[in-house]
Design a protein around this nucleic acid. Structure first.
Lengths: 221, 221
DNA sequence: CTCAAGTCACCAACAGTTGTTCAGTCAAGG
DNA sequence: CCTTGACTGAACAACTGTTGGTGACTTGAG
């Protein structure tokens, strides 16, 4: 089932077009990371097989496997950050901003379980992806904290900075728990994701669910 | 630093005492799973090395590596379930029951990151631990749902069964998110765990934090 | 057209893992 | 002594990341 199994021996790229293989390698690694049940088992030889190329050919474009993986992870992280920002851009209110960010986060996570695990599951060996598990999410967390502080209501709104930080942290942990359990425990009878997101934000902001649902459904259009 | 590096060539067990090696193997595997940064990289040969025995000797006591790991996981799961039940046993109220269960869950998770990852991180390859990631937690979840339903207040208390299920599910995802992010992202400035647990239960039950804190602190005594 | 230069990628092999098997060794009990 | 249980040593095939040397193809200059 491999794309270039034996059918097309993969025509060699023309003279100044060596970069296309590099792009193919990145794409293949991304696809494998997204697909694999255990992204940390990604193998240099798997990537080579996927593209239909010899394992040694990768070293012309990346110094080693670690560099390839880090490149892919950086792209995925930027993609998620961009998606969340774009989702929140047309926000008519602080609450809409928060809802859009959270919904984008959760949907990206469940749509691409492998990528989510790779970025936030803390699974990649430290020697392969130095500081990826530890650094990733820090910027996203900051945005969520700010968005939550602006959207919260009642006594939660008028709280000190460290209270706001804790509230944002709890929201993020809730989002992360939702995504990772949803991905890993498919056997559980899960309610619709949007119900969970609605309830989650409602609980963390003090706003009624009725106020959140419309903001969430309009996301689809 | 290996315990039996070369110092004690490990005296062979006497005639009917073959079971002691089995126990040693289980202990060593448990220790390694708890210690390793990536529990899924546990190796049959590591276990053998830890005990100071030949890799082949394991096959006298377990049919294969999978059986050994499953045995250890079952023990850990039973330990966690027992701890949660015991913590909740002297509960003076439904809320105290819930607080005790949640606190026991979180503290067990952060005290033994490796075991927590192994049980709930969905990391073990499916061919090695069939259905462990999917089945584990189902019983715990049932207990949490029941405990939450009894402890909730306001409109949350008088909700339909599927609403209670969703509420319990959300509480569990929040707990899981807290534990797993706490374990994997040590660089984040975390508030004290008990503050987070208090806030988390408060948010999910509708009870004021002041009502929860005393139940949590008395846990220590 | 001819042909050297430069790019692109491959082949074969390396040392190191891993889980697992199987014939055999060692020591003690009857 | 001989059986039996507890354990070992050596080997297996299947992997892994990585390297050095080599060939094939394209291009542009002469």
């Amino acid at each position: 089932m491999s794309p270039q199994e034996r059918s097309a021996p993969r025509r060699r790229n023309p003279r100044g077009q060596g970069q296309v293989l590099k792009a193919q390698l990145v794409d293949a690694a991304a696809k494998l990371l997204a697909t694999l049940d255990q992204p940390e088992t990604l193998t240099l030889r798997q990537v080579a097989r996927e593209v239909g190329v010899a394992p040694a050919s990768i070293y012309s474009h990346f110094p080693d496997l670690s560099a390839l993986i880090q490149h892919v992870l950086r792209l995925r992280y930027e993609e998620l950050a961009r998606l969340m920002d774009e989702a929140a851009r047309p926000a008519a209110s602080p609450l809409a901003d928060l809802v859009a960010r959270c919904a984008a986060y959760v949907h990206w996570g469940v749509d691409q379980p492998g990528h989510y695990r790779t970025l936030f599951g803390g699974r990649m060996p430290a020697d392969l992806v130095p500081g990826a598990a530890h650094g990733a999410g820090a910027e996203l967390l900051g945005a969520v904290v700010a968005s939550l502080a602006a959207a919260a209501t009642g006594e939660r709104k008028r709280s000190a900075a460290d209270q706001q930080w804790q509230a944002g942290l709890m929201l993020w942990t809730a989002l992360h728990g939702l995504v990772s359990l949803y991905n890993d425990h498919g056997a559980i009878p899960w309610p619709p994701l949007d119900h969970l997101i609605t309830d989650l934000i409602s609980v963390h902001t003090g706003r009624p669910a009725a106020e959140i649902t419309p903001l969430l459904t309009q996301r689809e259009g």
